[in-house]
C-alpha cells in the first residue's frame, strides 16, 4: 500500500481534470456578428449570435475604441440566443485612420460581459475627428460570478484542451529531465539500474510527447484551421521528438548492455542540453502562433484565470504521475528481463 498512494493520487487528479475540465460551463460569449463593417454617420442594426446566454435583466451594448471612447447602443434585444442591437454611429469619430477596429461589449447583471475583441471595422467617411465619444461616463460592465471557464473567441469550448494538451508537454519535459538526471547518475555510479530508470522515463516521456503532438494537431485543426502549421513551437517539439527517436535507435542498435547504457546515457545528456534552446529559446527568435509568442498574449494574464489554474496545475501533476507510473511498469519489466538474463531467478 505504501507505494500505491501516488498512483491513487494520479488517478484522482486525472479524474478531477476530466470531470471538472469537461463539465464546468463556459461564460457567455459572442459567436459572430453581421454586419461587421459599419461606417460613420449611419444607423446600423446588428445581428449578434450569442453563446451560452440566459435571459438577462437589462442588456446594454457598447462599441469600444479604447478605454476612453465608448458608444452606447440605442436598443438591445435578445430573442432565441440572438441579439439585435441598434447603434447610431456619429459622423465624428475619434480616429485619424479611415478604418478603425472596434470591440463590441454586451453586458448584463446576470450574464456578465460578452466581448468580441476588435471584430467590428468602422469606416469613416469624413476626415473630421473628435477627441472622445465618452459623454455619460464609464459604462458599468458586469462580471459573471461562479466557477466558470472564460470564453475566448476562436477557442470557444476547446479552451478545455488546455488541461489535456499542455500538461502533456509539461510532463514530457519533467520526464526527460528526470531521465537525464538518471543518466548522469548512471555515468557516475555505473549501476545498470540507473540506465534502466533513464530509458524507462525517456520512453514514457516520448509517449507523452507523441500524444502532445497528436492532441496539438487536433486542437490546431479546430482553431488554426490545419493539422500541421508552420508554427515554430510545433516544429521544434517535432524535432525534439526526432532526437529522442534517435536515442531509441541508438539503444536498439547497440548489443552489449554496458556499452549501450554508457553510450545512450551520454547521448541522452547531450540531447537534453540541445532540447533546452530548442523549446525555449528558438520560438522567441521566430514567430509562433502559441500564446506568449509573436505578440500573442501569454499564459498568466487573461488566458489562464484562477478557475483554469485550479484544473490546469492538478492536470500537470496528474499527467506527470501517469508518465512516471507507465515508466515504472516498463522499468519493472526491464528488471525482470535482466534477472532472467543473468539467471538469478528461481523458477
Amino acid at each position: 500500500m505504501k507505494s500505491l498512494w501516488w498512483k491513487c493520487l494520479c488517478i484522482a487528479l486525472l479524474l478531477y481534470a476530466l470531470f471538472v475540465g469537461m463539465l464546468t460551463p463556459l461564460k457567455p460569449g459572442i459567436l459572430n456578428i453581421s454586419p461587421f463593417l459599419v461606417s460613420s454617420g449611419e444607423r446600423v442594426s446588428m445581428e449578434v449570435e450569442a453563446y451560452n446566454v440566459e435571459a438577462g435583466k437589462e442588456w446594454q451594448a457598447y462599441l469600444k475604441k479604447d478605454s476612453l471612447s465608448y458608444l452606447k447602443a440605442s436598443a438591445v434585444e435578445l430573442t432565441n440566443g440572438k441579439f439585435k442591437i441598434d447603434f447610431e454611429i456619429p459622423s465624428h469619430i475619434p480616429s485619424e485612420t479611415s478604418l478603425q477596429a472596434l470591440t463590441l461589449l454586451i453586458t448584463d447583471e446576470r450574464n456578465g460581459t460578452l466581448v468580441y475583441p476588435e471584430g467590428i471595422q468602422l469606416k469613416s467617411s469624413t476626415n473630421e475627428s473628435t477627441s472622445s465619444w465618452l459623454k455619460e461616463g464609464h459604462p458599468r460592465l458586469y462580471k459573471k460570478e461562479g466557477f466558470l471557464f472564460p470564453y475566448r473567441n476562436i477557442l470557444r469550448e476547446t479552451i478545455r484542451n488546455m488541461y489535456y494538451h499542455v500538461p502533456l508537454w509539461f510532463s514530457m519535459f519533467i520526464l526527460f529531465f528526470a531521465g537525464m538526471m538518471c543518466s548522469i547518475w548512471y555515468l557516475k555510479t555505473k549501476k545498470i539500474e540507473y540506465d534502466h530508470r533513464a530509458s524507462s522515463l525517456i520512453y514514457s516521456g516520448m509517449l507523452m510527447g507523441v500524444l502532445g503532438l497528436i492532441t496539438g494537431s487536433l486542437w490546431a485543426k479546430a482553431t488554426w484551421g490545419a493539422y500541421w502549421t508552420n508554427d515554430m513551437k510545433l516544429n521544434m517539439s517535432a524535432v525534439s521528438m526526432l532526437i529522442y527517436f534517435a536515442y531509441a535507435i541508438l539503444r536498439s542498435g547497440t548489443e552489449d548492455i554496458e556499452r549501450k547504457a554508457t553510450l545512450s546515457s551520454a547521448y541522452n545528456i547531450f540531447a537534453f542540453i540541445t532540447i533546452v534552446p530548442l523549446i525555449f529559446v528558438l520560438p522567441r527568435v521566430a514567430d509562433s502562433l502559441h500564446p506568449g509568442n509573436g505578440g500573442n498574449p501569454a499564459f498568466g494574464g487573461e488566458d489562464l484565470d484562477n478557475t483554469m489554474r485550479a484544473v490546469f496545475y492538478p492536470a500537470i501533476i496528474g499527467f506527470t504521475l501517469m508518465g512516471v507510473w507507465l515508466g515504472q511498469i516498463l522499468l519493472r519489466i526491464k528488471r525482470i528481463k535482466e534477472k532472467i538474463f543473468f539467471n538469478k531467478i528461481d523458477f
Binding site: M236, V239, L242, I243, A246, I249, L250, G253, T254, L263, A266, Y267, F270, A271, T274, P277, L278, V281, L282, V285, A286
Partner: peptide, 27 residues
C-alpha cells in the same frame, strides 16, 4: 565519439547528429 568504432557507424551518425544541430542550423 559516442558511436566510436561501431560497425553501423555511418548509418547511425547522420540519424543521431542531424536532429541535434537543427537549432544551430535554423539560427
Amino acid at each position: 565519439a559516442v558511436l566510436g568504432q561501431q560497425t553501423s557507424q555511418s548509418v547511425l551518425m547522420s540519424v543521431l547528429s542531424l536532429p541535434l544541430i537543427i537549432p544551430i542550423l535554423l539560427l
